[in-house]
Design a protein around this nucleic acid. Structure first.
Lengths: 334, 334
DNA sequence: TTGGTGTGCTAAATCGTTTTAGGCTAACCA
DNA sequence: TGGTTAGCCTAAAACGATTTAGCACACCAA
């Protein structure tokens, strides 16, 4: 059951391959193919169920109608939801998405870039990590559109879509302070990307603006790839050994570990202890009490990414890099 | 900055394209290429950073080292976690995964199959839906390995990996009964796939074996694509209007809607009202009280899928279809 | 000398498209 | 009458790899 080729269609229709190709690609008019031939060929294609071989097409044209999406971890709900939205939107515009996770591993990220490059994807959407600057620069030098999202690499001059991490965290801390909290802890990670440092900076600035001294002992940096039990233990130790009346968790998975820690030491969230998580999660709405969270507007982020990509794909020349900073929403619960 | 081709390497090394190709593909020995030439060519490839064009390679060889994964919805944590595991395992064996979501839409599913077909993926992993039987049959007729997982289509004769849905639900109901529950409701969906009906059948059988009459009024079938608010309303109505002392939710997202419903009507889970969810979720561990769940062993499922695929890819002839039913684990909490 | 067997390499076909450059006929115009 | 134009279509090159078939030489045995 070999699949049909354009040649088979040409033979059946008794015309040349070229003619069939023109018709398939909607250039029939332009190339002045007669109505009769167009009809005939279309009919044969229809009846035979012929589908052009995309691989041959890609080889010839050099593009694939595929956009590569490189993220940290598809099993994290923030990324899987973004992926889903991007996929939907791209699909409607005739593009397919292929994605893969880096697990915050520089080598895997580089391999993925190579994989996508060798598959000739038309554009790259990347939530980047430190260490891949050169590889990305090469993509850009080769003229590929690359959009960063969620995180930025300041050394690379390309477009970026991300939430306003600084203000998100600033506002959260401000809201703690407005509630009368004084000993505010931050649970963050040690991955060294702008997005995380901005969240940290917002925390610092808010304390400073309110005349509260920054205390390094209240900032817990969790090692990225460590076991969750370890994380829980560290958070427990922070909460038990320091006077803390509010915590901002800098990612949703840290917040989840945090909530588990609270359960174990039986510390209750309430009037004298508050918590905010960065990135919302189904578990937060269901938790008793419900957990406040900073929501990133996924829909808008996805839309912005796709728009940037499509602009770059349709314009011939290189467009200047754009930065889109999208405001977040602080959802205070209970 | 055009990328290098095999021809460039051949010219640089002053040998033929054929020779370079043999060396790249590890056939140098077999084709008796001299050690000296091998060294020289390898060195040049190394230095120039040449990477073969996978598209040209696919066009010529007819395969891609890519496995297509078609699932219901990547933003559902069950699928995203499975996807991640499959991706990892495939990656280690030199295969890449591309995935896409069907959203339980027959047309989208068919389009995806066509997309993957035209990209010449080497094998298909599908969580199928009713209505794509013919398309899958065509893949099989063309000699493509296809593995179903999570759900099965009885009319299609291909391998399947899935959890033991019937027993999972039977055991859950049995555990309710052992706790003295009598009025046990089932919240399920109206998608008509074996996996869902098996869960329903397990419920029925367990009731029957314990001499409890099956009551259709206690079975709520939720329409798949409806708004969550609607779902919550229906669940509320079930719980308020019927005497119910236990509920089995047939998917985790239904359970989440269910928990939201409980919150709204202030019905508490405890000694006189119990709940079990199919498929575990982070929210369940954190919930107060913690929610019992049926865990599917994701790791084992992913491993089984990959094994089946690789067997089929490496064997020349068609292998007979296999069914792997993997036992689930009922995790009773609080 | 002849024929056979390795060894070391390569020319050219092939995969299925797109696209450039141009061929052929008939019609039209001066 | 001859030249131009328009209309309709196609031959062949190209994309970048793999693979088949086979060339040229050396060596050895009979």
């Amino acid at each position: 059951m070999k699949s049909l080729s354009i040649k088979d269609i040409a033979v059946k229709a008794n015309v040349s391959i070229t003619t069939v190709s023109f018709i398939i690609n909607g250039k029939a008019k332009e190339k002045s193919i007669s109505e009769a031939v167009i009809e005939k060929v279309k009919k044969i294609i229809e009846e035979s169920g012929y589908k052009p071989n995309q691989i041959a097409r890609s080889l010839r044209t050099g593009n694939s109608n595929i956009i590569g999406l490189i993220i940290e971890d598809i099993s994290n709900s923030f990324f899987s939801r973004i992926a889903r939205l991007i996929e939907d939107k791209a699909y409607k515009r005739g593009y397919k998405i292929i994605y893969s996770s880096t697990e915050n591993n520089v080598d895997k990220a580089k391999e993925l870039i190579n994989l996508f490059k060798s598959r000739k994807v038309d554009a790259y959407i990347i939530s980047p990590i430190k260490g891949i600057e050169e590889d990305v620069q090469m993509l850009l030098d080769d003229g590929n559109p690359v959009i960063f999202f969620d995180r930025n690499l300041p050394d690379v001059d390309t477009s970026y879509v991300g939430a306003d991490h600084f203000n998100a965290s600033y506002q959260s801390i401000q809201s703690f302070i407005d509630q009368g909290k004084k000993n505010i802890a931050l649970v963050t990670t040690d991955i060294n990307v702008a997005q995380i440092t901005e969240r940290h900076d917002g925390y610092k600035k808010a304390l400073e603006d309110n005349g509260i001294a920054y205390d390094d002992d209240l900032v817990l940096k969790i090692h990225f790839n460590q076991e969750e039990n370890e994380t829980i233990a560290q958070i427990k130790s922070l909460l038990e050994n320091k006077k803390v009346d509010a915590v901002l968790f800098v990612t949703n998975y840290l917040a989840i570990s945090g909530l588990k820690a609270l359960k174990q030491i039986d510390k209750k969230i309430g009037d004298d202890f508050a918590v905010i998580a960065y990135d919302d999660h189904e578990a937060f709405e269901l938790h008793t009490p419900r957990i406040s969270a900073i929501q990133q507007p996924l829909e808008e982020i996805a839309e912005a990414i796709i728009k940037l990509i499509l602009n770059r794909l349709s314009s011939k020349g290189k467009l200047p890099a754009e930065e889109l900073i999208i405001p977040t929403r602080l959802v205070l619960r209970d």
